[in-house]
């Protein structure tokens, strides 16, 4: 017994030794900066001057900053459009790909390809698609008799446009839904079929409830991603003008945070902004978790 525990301890030690490079990297490049940003958020600091302790000053200033509210509004508008849309389309694609017919793997690949394109390339491509004069989208809209808007150049449409683009990169959501579907035992459907339930009834009363843990997971992760949107807005705003163009209509929260930090060097304020976002995400996740027992069904219970 004794010998084994020594061996176990030795193995433990070796294990830690093996992951030591990662631990050091994590402390220096991840945990360190995170803690430092907490510290920073209570200071006024413009990189070159000395840090000045101002307590909750940065957080107080947030509440009188109209652009803070504005960028929050923009980000939520995006999330409200993007997240449900991605979930619905992801589920739809998964349902279409689930039946065992020939060629599903080809279709799976097709639907997933856009998701492996780097976001910068996707954004650049979509600037062109959204071009009001020469773009692909308004060309098709015109064909069906709709006079398309100015998309990225319009204050009303720039955020929805960026949100719609998210559907094109629905791949990961679709794959996870597909995995969720594969997990559902065939017998449930067969039993329901015998009972005379049609496709919609089976979908409504069997598939969706049994998929609810998947939906729950995807909802939270997609929401977190949506609230942290940066690159798309940075590249696409105003058709490439960036930084909230046109007229701040695409000033996403993270863009504003970046602007405060790197255009105006308000490092303390930028840190405070990032912690408020963290807090918002945390609270939202908590709320979703708390309400989850009302709509998420686990097979075991």
């Amino acid at each position: 017994m004794r010998k084994r525990s020594i061996l176990a301890r030795k193995e433990n030690l070796e294990g830690y030794l093996f992951i030591l490079p990662w631990i050091i990297g994590f402390c220096v490049f991840t945990a360190g900066p995170i803690l430092f940003s907490v510290f920073l958020s209570f200071h006024e600091w413009h990189i070159f001057d000395d840090m000045k302790w101002i307590g909750l000053g940065n957080y107080k200033m947030l509440f009188t900053d109209p652009l803070f509210y504005h960028s929050l509004k923009v980000t939520f508008e995006y999330a409200i459009i993007n997240v449900p849309l991605v979930l619905i389309v992801g589920l739809l694609l998964a349902l279409l790909l689930y039946p065992k017919v020939k060629g599903t793997s080809v279709f799976r690949t097709i639907f997933y390809i856009p998701s492996i394109v780097p976001v910068v390339a996707t954004a650049t491509l979509w600037i062109w698609i959204y071009n009001p004069e020469y773009g692909l989208l308004n060309f098709f809209l015109e064909k069906i008799g709709i006079d398309g808007p100015d998309w990225l150049y319009s204050t009303e449409w720039v955020v929805p446009a960026i949100a719609f683009m998210g559907v094109w990169t629905v791949g990961p959501t679709m794959i996870i839904y597909l995995a969720g579907l594969e997990d559902i035992p065939q017998v449930y459907w067969d039993a329901a079929k015998v009972d005379g339930a049609n496709y919609w009834q089976r979908l409504r009363y069997i598939t969706l409830p049994l998929l609810s843990p998947t939906t729950f997971f995807l909802f939270i992760t997609n929401l977190m991603g949506a609230l942290q949107t940066f690159a798309q807005a940075y590249i696409m705003g105003g058709g490439g003008e960036g930084f909230g163009a046109p007229a701040n209509a695409s000033l996403f929260y993270c863009l504003y945070l970046y602007e405060q930090g790197w255009s105006w060097f308000n490092m303390g304020y930028a840190s405070a902004l990032s912690w408020i976002l963290t807090l918002i995400i945390f609270v939202l996740t908590l709320i979703i978790f708390k309400t989850s027992n009302k709509w998420v069904y686990y097979e075991r219970s």
Partner: peptide, 9 residues
């Protein structure tokens, strides 16, 4: 749907 996804490419 595939056409819609591939069209931009």
């Amino acid at each position: 749907l595939s056409i819609a996804f591939i069209m931009p490419f």
